[in-house]
Design a protein around this nucleic acid. Structure first.
Length: 289
DNA sequence: AACTAGATCAACCGCGCATTA
DNA sequence: ATAATGCGCGGTTGATCTAGT
């Protein structure tokens, strides 16, 4: 099947939006709503692709967009949600009102990713990068000890899991699925538990989402709708119940002696460790305003 | 002041999913 | 059941800005 182009590429303007174009788009949408994005440019009198209009509106012109730099709390939230959700920027954005997926993706790639690297953490897995032979931020001895503690915690959590799993299987399926190959809650939860994601939770390690593991959990990386998807909420609540990645960050604080903390003199590192208490998962329930 | 390299971020592109005919 | 269409997502690009020399 050949996909029809979304617009006549030769007849549309590309590149940065002019002020007048913004005005036209805002005026049109405020009066008529966006309706069909494909037909909007023609109706509004814009020489733009509908896709471009949608992007401009959702990423910049929308009235509820929060402009300006991210607060430390927002940055922290992005890091923690990334540990749970991986590169699902739209899902992360849904938890930060006023911030767009594009903005979050940019802030991640330009700031937060580098910050994790400088802390000696792998930005994809959120695990100490010494595991891959490139530790920079923390003393190797401390990290080795932490790995051992995680392993111990994992064994403990696995025992708990065996009890939790049976309880979860009793949950009723929340709604009829539209497709026969879509999973019900218990099935989905089990898949999560048995996936890389679930293992991370069970291990009390920060979650790492490889593309393969995301696919194994959800079918595809974009199948979960970010805003009200019950599966996503369930995933997040699983994380909550299982002392997720925030415990990792704060837990490391608990386990480091003062002298070890001095070893990692990076003040940002300290900030991240101090941000949440071991059981404080409220950031998943309350939204940053 | 001029140049360069790196950082930033708005915008584009291609793909996949959902919906509709 | 299948094809066509629209939309949203994540990855990438490139123009612009900024700091350093």
């Amino acid at each position: 099947m050949v996909r029809a182009p979304c617009c006549d590429k030769t007849a549309v303007k590309k590149g940065p939006w002019a002020r007048e174009e913004d005005d036209i788009l805002v005026n049109y949408i405020s009066k008529n709503g966006h309706g069909s994005w494909r037909t909007l440019p023609k109706l509004a009198g814009l020489l733009r692709c509908g896709k471009s209009c949608r992007l401009r509106w959702t990423n910049y012109l929308r009235p509820d967009i929060k402009h300006g730099p991210f607060t430390p709390e927002e940055e922290q939230l992005v890091i923690q949600l990334h540990a749970i959700l991986g590169n699902r920027w739209a899902a992360i954005a849904a938890r930060l009102p006023g911030r767009t997926d594009n903005e979050i993706k940019n802030i991640w790639n330009t700031h937060l990713r580098k910050r994790l690297i400088s802390m000696g953490l792998d930005p994809q897995t959120h695990q100490p990068s010494c595991l891959e032979g490139s530790a920079k931020g923390l003393p190797t001895s401390s990290l080795t000890r932490h790995m051992a503690q995680w392993e111990s915690a994992r064994l403990e959590a696995e025992a708990r899991l065996s009890m939790d799993s049976s309880a979860l299987l009793l949950l009723p399926s929340p709604k009829k699925t539209t497709s026969p190959n879509k999973t019900t809650y218990p099935d989905y939860i089990l898949r999560v538990w048995h996936s890389e994601v679930g293992e991370s939770f069970r291990n009390r390690k920060p979650v790492c989402f490889s593309p393969a593991s995301q696919a194994s959990v959800s079918g595809t990386t974009s199948e979960m709708a970010p805003k009200t998807d019950p599966k996503l909420d369930m995933e997040l609540s699983c994380a909550t119940r299982s002392d997720d990645c925030s415990t990792f960050y704060s837990g490391m604080t608990d386990r480091l002696s003062p002298s070890e903390m001095e070893d990692s003199s990076d003040t940002e590192l300290q900030l991240y460790f101090d941000f949440h208490g071991p059981n404080d998962m409220s950031f998943l329930e309350t939204q940053v305003n």
